[in-house]
Structures are given as C-alpha cells and as structure tokens.
Amino acid sequence: MVEEHKATLTYTQLLKEDLGIFRLVPEDGVIPDYKAGQFLTIGMPVKSEGGKVVRRAYSIASHPENKKFFEFVIRWVRKPFPGRLTTELFNAESVSGVDFPDEKEIGVTYHLGSYTDPAYSKQVLALATRAPREETPNPGNDSTKLPSLRDMFYSVEFHEREVFEMLGVYFEGHPDNRRLLLPEDWADLPPLRKDFKNKGR
C-alpha cells in the first residue's frame, strides 16, 4: 500500500562534495513503523523537467526507533555511460586491421584515447586482438569474426565498418555492417589483405 505524505527538510549537512546527510519530517509528524534496511520513495518537483515530480528510492539510515525524523545519507553517483569499461576512455582514435598471412591471422588494433581525464589524455591505449584468417575470404560468412566494441565505444562505428570492408573482419554485434568506402559492387578480395596485389607492382 502506497501512501503519499508531504514532508519538510529539517536538516542538511554536506560531508563531501558528493555526500550529504538529509533529515525529513513528515507534515503530520508521525513516523510510521519500518524495519532496518527499508527504503522510502522521495519525490520532488524538478524545475528543469517542467515541474514534473521525480521519484527516487532511498534507504533510510536512521534507527527504526527514532520517531523524530527520517535520516538519509545520500551520495551523488556520477553515472557512467551504460556498458562503458571506464568512464574516462571514450574515443577511438583509430581501428586498424593488419593482415598476417604467415600466421593465418588478422590483427585488429584499437587505439583508444581519453578527452576528460588529464592523466589519460596524454596517452593512447592500444588494444590488440587477432581473428582467424581464411585463404578464400567470404566477408561476413566465414570464420573471420570478432565481437564489436561499438556498444562500448560508439565512436568505433565507422572505423569497424572500414576494417570490415578492407580486411573482411566481420564484427558481430555491429548494427550496420555495410560498405563504407569501397563501391557497392566491389567483388574482389578485401583490398588491404596482403594477397591483394597492387597492379603494376
């Protein structure tokens, strides 16, 4: 059963820049019974969303026998973007595929950088992986496949499309595995493989 009560904020204390203590007293002053660890849904009209009441559930921090107020210790969590490895590495500088015909493998190197973290922004992180290589490639339908990083790093979308057409590495989970640079009717080998010979060379 859900009841709505109005409450007054009686006490706030900022412990850190993202951590604070808040105490609420219901308008009629009656604190209902609750168990330790129970949570309370607090709603507040938010101006930036047009006065809509935004509701969030918070664990009650005060003791159940305390009948004077509800106490909450609330921490503001900076939300990482969904599916992100870290909150700081964002942009794919480049995704390059390298053909290793001797080892029957195709390497794919992701160069990742960061814009926001001053410590990371000086450097580029290289993530390298290999996929099996087939002598007669059939891009998309052979074993040359890798999972796509597009869900984690949105910026690799076009880079992975380029690697797919240039080396025939199919990225599973990429929503848009179409040709990017090559013409639609390209029917030759993927051009950056070593067995695709430059004419006249």
Partner: peptide
C-alpha cells in the same frame, strides 16, 4: 561530442578542452 569521438574544432566547440599540441 566525447562519446562520438569527435576531434579538433568540433570537440573544442562543444566545450572540451583538448588539443594534442597541448596535451601531448
């Protein structure tokens, strides 16, 4: 701008202070 991995003037116009000449 950060998530799309844009760079250069596009990134700086969106308020990200990033320039390879300064950072690296």
């Amino acid at each position: 701008a950060i998530r799309l991995g844009t760079t250069g003037s596009v990134l700086r116009a969106s308020g990200v202070d990033y320039d390879v000449r300064v950072k690296e």
